[in-house]
């Protein structure tokens, strides 16, 4: 569906994208994972033909984003990171407006958006600007889908959204994918990578890795242990002073520890922590998660 070949984009002295290449297959749920400033939004603007790359080539469904931008816009639905519907139109008016712009009608494609739109339909006469955050998001998604696009692109739809609403939103994306629509989504939440079929990790304008979430985790190369003790903050500080330390990072109620040599000697490490007077030390070897892999790649 999408073929990106060595695109580079600079804004004055900042390089937003540095020779980025990857492909997204038809019908895939594909994630672009990376922190703010990694280049995700620039990338999406280029794919949606809203911004021109300095160099490189992007094809969407066999169409060139520069030459064939009109055709591409017809088959693409785009939900930008910032709410960009008309705040002074009602919910229903926004939906009708988008349907008309794309030369279709709400009625024709209603079945596609029904599950999402039915949540906000009771408020169809309310101005879009007066909706809550969650409802705005559902309306924006309905508007991006109303012309039944082949490709749906969502720029950080879950940023600043609570854990429960995030889960609901991903359920909606899975449903859209089942309708045969290719979904390309970006997120700064590492855990959401697990919900995609394939992902790229982006950081500082570059692609660090591309694979299935399981493939990314498999590539993790070090011993990884989880350590906890009564005083967690002091534990992190002491682990970082340990001679063989590579990283000691808090993960919820435990510390994930890796060594420079890659291997970890349990007895020596526990001895050291006991000498530093830690109580209730717990130590176990663990399997890495997706965030461990990201941290390994950027360190």
């Amino acid at each position: 569906m999408i073929n990106i070949f060595q695109i580079t984009k600079k804004y004055e002295s900042t390089t937003a994208l540095d020779s980025v290449s990857f492909q997204v297959d038809d019908g895939e749920l594909f994630g672009v994972i990376g922190p703010d400033g990694a280049g995700k939004t620039t990338l999406f603007r280029i794919i949606t033909s809203l911004l021109l790359p300095d160099s490189g080539k992007v094809m969407v469904n066999g169409l060139d984003v520069i030459k064939d931008y009109r055709e591409i816009r017809k088959i693409t639905g785009y939900m930008p990171g910032r709410f960009s519907l008309y705040q002074d139109l009602t919910v229903e008016e926004n939906l009708q407006f988008y349907a008309t712009v794309f030369g279709t009608s709400v009625k024709k494609n209603y079945d596609l958006i029904k599950d999402i739109y039915s949540h906000i339909e009771p408020f169809k006469n309310r101005l879009a600007g007066k909706l809550s955050g969650g409802m705005k998001q559902k309306l924006a998604l309905s508007c991006a889908l109303i012309h039944r696009p082949q490709l749906l692109i969502l720029d950080e739809p879950t940023t600043g959204v609570d854990a429960v609403s995030r889960k609901e939103f991903w359920d909606m994306l899975k449903k859209i994918q089942r309708e045969g629509i290719t979904v390309l989504v970006s997120t700064p939440y590492m855990d959401e990578a697990l919900l995609c079929e394939r992902v790229v990790f982006m950081e500082k304008a570059k692609i660090l890795a591309m694979d299935s979430p399981q493939g990314l985790i498999k590539a993790y190369s070090r011993d990884l242990v989880s350590v906890s003790a009564d005083d967690m903050h002091r534990l992190v500080v002491d682990l970082r002073k340990y001679p063989d330390v590579n990283s000691a990072l808090l993960f919820g109620h435990e510390v994930h520890y890796t060594s420079r040599s890659g291997r970890i000697n349990k007895d020596e490490l526990i001895n050291y922590l006991q000498k530093e007077r830690h109580n209730n030390i717990k130590f176990r070897k663990i399997k890495p998660g997706i965030e461990d892999r990201f941290l390994e790649l950027i360190s």
Partner: peptide, 17 residues
Amino acid sequence: DEPTGGVDPVTRRMFWD
């Protein structure tokens, strides 16, 4: 108020330090 939103995982942890 949401001090670490969108921040990369390393910086997020440094922020908590």
